[in-house]
Computed example of a mutant assay.
Amino acid sequence: MALQKLQLSLQFGDIPYAARHRAALPRHAVARAIRHALADDAEITVRIVGEEEGRELNKSYRKKDYATNVLTFDYEQEPVVMADLVLCAPVVAREAKEQGKTLAAHYAHLLVHGTLHAQGWDHETSTADAEEMEAYEVAILAGLGLKNPYR
């Protein structure tokens, strides 16, 4: 299967332990995870943020007053996927530790998850949709050589 074309912008905001997060997110790994989840060519910005920025974005756009692991802002789905993925570094690090995963593996999962959201996948609409999206994520991650993140 040929991978889709990707125009990627990778940004790091003001985050604690920035070197650790930059090391877990080399540009080629970010592009690889996203491209494996794409059905069409894409222009995607990935921004790694601190807890305050993550909380403000989640509060402004989802009316939820906490920082979440990944937010997806999709602007276009056809013919080119256009989206911003915002990952909150402290939340991702905390979850990776709690789940016994490497930081890089957890970031890869969330990049795949966010990329699927950017293409219209939604796990909050029904149990069936959630199960379908989860199974697809697991398959994509297996193709990247990563374990099932839900076990």
Rank of each mutant, 00 (worst) to 15 (best):
D129E: 11
L8F: 07
A130L: 13
A104Q: 14
S9F: 09
G50C: 10
E53C: 00
K64E: 15
D74G: 15
L111D: 02
V112D: 07
G120T: 04
V86S: 02
Y136L: 07
G100D: 15
G13L: 05
Q7R: 14
D129M: 09
T125S: 04
Q11E: 11
D14L: 10
M82S: 15
L38K: 09
G143N: 06
A29Y: 06
A39L: 10
E52T: 14
I34C: 11
D122K: 01
G120L: 06
L116N: 09
R62L: 04
L71I: 08
A18F: 01
A83Y: 02
Y150M: 03
T127N: 10
Y66M: 06
Q77D: 12
I140F: 07
A33D: 03
L57H: 00
R62D: 03
A67Q: 05
V49R: 13
W121P: 03
A67T: 04
L38Y: 07
K63A: 03
A33E: 04
R35Q: 15
D74I: 12
E137V: 12
Y107F: 15
A83L: 00
L25I: 03
Q119V: 08
L85S: 02
R27S: 10
L85W: 00
Y75W: 12
H109E: 14
Q7K: 11
L8I: 01
D74Y: 14
P26K: 14
H123G: 13
A135H: 02
G143M: 05
D40G: 00
Y107M: 07
L116F: 12
G114V: 00
A128I: 01
D65R: 08
F12G: 00
E51T: 05
